[in-house]
Structure formats: structure tokens, C-alpha cells
């Protein structure tokens, strides 16, 4: 006789039925999210045409121009700028915490850096809007302070904890034997780190910056408050001192004013779909790299 092999709907006790029902509710709701956003967003792609919507250069919803390209470009520009700041800062800090700083200092710094990720985005928006933007205007002598650079700086602070905590964990999980072997050959500490520890930890570090990318691209309120919200491609396109607009900011700004079921409404959900697709792709690639990271590292 064969032991009953586990089946999907074969309950062991009453507790399991109860838990199963609650779990199903939450899982169904969570899947509904995807379904609903797609359901409301896809009409925009159909009505406007896929490439017109994605690559259209004019975003002026009140005149019926729904080209999402400036928004996508703005989002990517801001996020890449933020990574340009947060990646070196984050990785260096991670190396410092994992390899150089004394234990007490790491124990003190880590929670503080993690707190940076917990501070509400509205606070960052406030800080950027009232403090950083005027400073940028003053020091860089630009017309307004709410430009791509300001958004990048704010985003870099918001997402750097992701990079630091994951990277330092990956770096710390590189086996001690490797280091000993290298140090025994006469390599200095930095040489060991550079030629041995970092290459081993590389997949994890890449995963961390992808996750940071995902967080940054979905950030809404802080970006909205400091990016200027001008739907344009700066000239030259890499000019960080011009205001831009972002996917998330456009959704947040317009959603309160659209009428339900209008094209504008569907277009905003369409932007949501684009955002979802970007975050899913980024998270999937990050997952791929996490699986390549040294064992025992959990994200």
C-alpha cells in the first residue's frame, strides 16, 4: 500500500482548512492586482497603438497627446543618475562595513543606513523640495532647482540602503579561506578584496543594484516633488540640469483629476502597466543573479 502522497486539496485538520481559505483570499486578491491593472491599462495600448503610446514624443494629456516616451525617458534618466551616485557610495560603504570597520561601528552604522530606506518618501520629497532644490539652484546657478539631478540625488539616498545591506551581506559571506589563501601569498588587504572578494561577490552586488533600480523606478511622491514634472527630453538628452517628468509622477499627478473610464484614465493605467513590466523584468534579472550569489545569502 502506498502512503498518501500530498494532494492540493487534502486537508489534515480543521486549522488547515481555515488557513487555506485565508491564504487563498490573499493570494487571489494579490493576483487580482495584476489582472485589474492590465484590464484597465491594455485599452490604452489598443486605442493609441502600441508604438504611438510607448514612443510618442508629446505628453500633454489635456490636449489629447499621450506619448509616454518623455515619461519613460525621464524615469530612466533619473534612475540611472541615482545609480551613478548610489552604486559607488553603496558598494564602497558595503566593503567598509564588511571588511574594514570595527564591529561596534558596523553595528551602529548598519541600522542607521537601513533606516534611510524606512523614512517615508514624502519626507524625502519635503527635504528635496524645501532644502535640496534651492541649494542646487543656488550652487549650480540654474533657473529652477527641481531638475533631474535633484531627483537623482534624492533617489540615490533612498535606494542606497538596498545596495549596502545586500552587498555587505554577500561580501561577508565570501569564505574566509579564500582571503587567508590570498593574504598568505603576500597580497595586501585591498588587493585581496579587489581581486578575490569582489569578483566572488559580484553576482550579489549586481542583484543589489538591480533591486535598487526597481525601487527607484517605482518611487513616486519624492520624485514628483523634485523632478520638475516637465514632460520633455532635455537637450542635450543627458542634461541633468533640466526638469523632467516620470511615469510614477504622471500617474500620481493626473489620477485625481481624470474621469473614470476616459482615455486619459486608461492611459494612466497603461503607464502603470509599463511600470509593472519594468519592475518585473528588473526583479527577474535580480533573482537570476541572486541564485548565482554565494550560498546562504538571503535577500
Amino acid at each position: 500500500m502506498r502512503l498518501k502522497c500530498p494532494k492540493f486539496l487534502c486537508f489534515k485538520d480543521k486549522a488547515e482548512i481555515f488557513l487555506f481559505i485565508l491564504a487563498s483570499i490573499s493570494i487571489i486578491i494579490l493576483f487580482l492586482i495584476i489582472v485589474f491593472v492590465l484590464n484597465e491599462g491594455v485599452p490604452a495600448f489598443i486605442e493609441l497603438g502600441f508604438s504611438n503610446f510607448l514612443f510618442g514624443h508629446r505628453w500633454s494629456p489635456y490636449y489629447g497627446n499621450f506619448g509616454a516616451f518623455p515619461l519613460i525617458y525621464g524615469s530612466i534618466l533619473i534612475v540611472l543618475g541615482s545609480l551613478a551616485i548610489s552604486v559607488p557610495l553603496g558598494v564602497f560603504t558595503a566593503i567598509f562595513l564588511a571588511e574594514y570597520s570595527p564591529r561596534w561601528l558596523s553595528n551602529m552604522l548598519k541600522p542607521i543606513i537601513e533606516l534611510l530606506a524606512a523614512i517615508p518618501s514624502i519626507i524625502y520629497g519635503f527635504f528635496g523640495f524645501v532644502f535640496l532644490a534651492p541649494k542646487i539652484m543656488e550652487f549650480l546657478n540654474v533657473g529652477i532647482g527641481e531638475v533631474a539631478l535633484t531627483a537623482s540625488i534624492i533617489l540615490s539616498i533612498m535606494t542606497v540602503p538596498t545596495i549596502v545591506s545586500i552587498s555587505s551581506e554577500v561580501i561577508a559571506s565570501v569564505p574566509k579561506e579564500y582571503r587567508k589563501a590570498s593574504l598568505a601569498l603576500g597580497a595586501t588587504k585591498w588587493q585581496t578584496i579587489k581581486s578575490l572578494v569582489l569578483p566572488t561577490a559580484k553576482p550579489g552586488i549586481i542583484a543589489s543594484l538591480l533591486l535598487a533600480f526597481g525601487r527607484a523606478v517605482g518611487e513616486t511622491v519624492a520624485v514628483l516633488m523634485v523632478c520638475g514634472c516637465v514632460p520633455q527630453i532635455p537637450s542635450p538628452p543627458w542634461n541633468y540640469l533640466e526638469p523632467v517628468h516620470a511615469l510614477t509622477a504622471a500617474i500620481a499627478l493626473d489620477m485625481g483629476e481624470v474621469s473614470w473610464g476616459s482615455l486619459h484614465y486608461h492611459v494612466l493605467f497603461g503607464l502603470g502597466v509599463i511600470l509593472l513590466v519594468i519592475t518585473f523584468i528588473v526583479n527577474m534579472i535580480a533573482d537570476f543573479f541572486i541564485k548565482k550569489a554565494p550560498r546562504g545569502v538571503q535577500i
Partner: peptide, 8 residues
């Protein structure tokens, strides 16, 4: 990892 605006 889904942005909170999507939940909104």
C-alpha cells in the same frame, strides 16, 4: 517589489 503607486 511592486511600486506602491500601482497598489494605488
Amino acid at each position: 517589489g511592486v511600486p506602491s503607486i500601482i497598489f494605488g
